[in-house]
Amino acid sequence: MKHLAALLLLATTALAAEPLHRLKLETPQDLQALLHYSGEPLPLVSAHRGGPAKDYPENCIATFEHTLAHTFSMLEIDPRRTKDGAIVVHHDATLERTTTGTGKVVDATLAELKQLRLKDTEGHATEHQLPTLDEVIEWARGKTVLVLDQKDVTAVERAEIVTRLKAEAYVMLIVSSFKEVVAVHRVNPNITMEVMIPTLAKAEEFDGLGVPWKNVVAFVGHVPPEDKALYDYIHGKGACTMIGTSRNLDRKVIQGEVKDIKLLEPEYRAFLNRGADIIETDIPVPLGTMLYGSAAVPKGKAGLFEKR
């Protein structure tokens, strides 16, 4: 525990003086209240891989701090298993793109992986190490919502980790099938899930599973559906919808096709006006600042948002 505390202190010292946009979630019911559809705009983005940028590697605690210093954000992260059974946070199955190492994550021990350094979006090595999933979950308590993608750790295994760490109030799971949704809910009915529900037919199918809508954020797609009935149906169940812009609008900014994100503001807002409540993005800092920098927190949820 002393080793873990030291790592967390080191990772957060650089930004300690900068206030964070925190989500104050103490119980699973707080998370459900945050994500309950109220009809009011929700000033919250979901940072894909935590929101990497120059000097800030993906899936890195320092990067998470950087994102939260600028905007309220959920953090989508990627658990992967090591050779000796530990679970680290790293997107790719291999190490070359984002670390100073080579080979597969699963072929290295945790001790070996901790010797590596993470690379930023420009491929430059930084001082930062791969964090373990336990380290990230401990860091996130009282700060934000973590969204755990699947990779090579199954939905049920992730549910068991959340349960073991008593993190249901602020850790969600991305679950890829309705069968897994049911399995996770059986393991722990307090766990919230992000579930792909891209059509009205799928929404109606989900409704028959017996899993409460309060446990779900509906991811409707990377190409946001135009079917108003889909959004209305999900909202009518009290759930929020999420869309992804990492594969479309964000790329125009990242690749330099558009120099100023403000030029794309009408297109991002069009997705919100269509019925999306949360945008998953590769550029949470500029996007969250642009969309929500002066936005008011919904009155009914004001106690869940804090900047300090």
Rank of each mutant, 00 (worst) to 15 (best):
residue 42 L to P: 03
residue 54 K to D: 14
residue 62 A to H: 15
residue 52 P to A: 06
residue 43 P to Y: 04
residue 35 L to H: 09
residue 42 L to G: 04
residue 39 G to Q: 04
residue 67 T to P: 00
residue 61 I to F: 07
residue 40 E to Y: 00
residue 34 L to I: 10
residue 38 S to M: 02
residue 38 S to F: 01
residue 41 P to M: 04
residue 43 P to H: 03
residue 58 E to F: 14
residue 43 P to G: 01
residue 60 C to F: 06
residue 55 D to Q: 11
residue 58 E to T: 07
residue 65 E to C: 09
residue 62 A to D: 05
residue 52 P to D: 02
residue 52 P to H: 03
residue 68 L to I: 03
residue 39 G to W: 05
residue 48 H to I: 11
residue 32 Q to I: 09
residue 36 H to E: 12
residue 45 V to T: 12
residue 64 F to W: 07
residue 49 R to V: 04
residue 58 E to N: 14
residue 41 P to F: 03
residue 54 K to C: 02
residue 45 V to F: 07
residue 49 R to L: 06
residue 37 Y to H: 15
residue 45 V to W: 07
residue 44 L to H: 01
residue 33 A to D: 09
residue 43 P to E: 07
residue 42 L to E: 07
residue 63 T to D: 09
residue 46 S to L: 09
residue 70 H to N: 12
residue 66 H to G: 01
residue 37 Y to M: 03
residue 34 L to G: 11
residue 47 A to F: 00
residue 47 A to G: 05
residue 50 G to S: 07
residue 55 D to R: 12
residue 44 L to R: 02
residue 66 H to L: 02
residue 42 L to C: 05
residue 50 G to R: 05
residue 48 H to P: 10
residue 59 N to I: 08
residue 50 G to A: 12
residue 68 L to V: 04
residue 38 S to W: 01
residue 59 N to R: 13
residue 46 S to W: 09
residue 49 R to S: 13
residue 35 L to D: 03
residue 34 L to W: 12
residue 41 P to K: 06
residue 35 L to F: 15
residue 68 L to T: 03
residue 42 L to F: 02
residue 34 L to H: 12
residue 49 R to Y: 14
residue 32 Q to E: 14
residue 53 A to M: 05
residue 69 A to W: 00
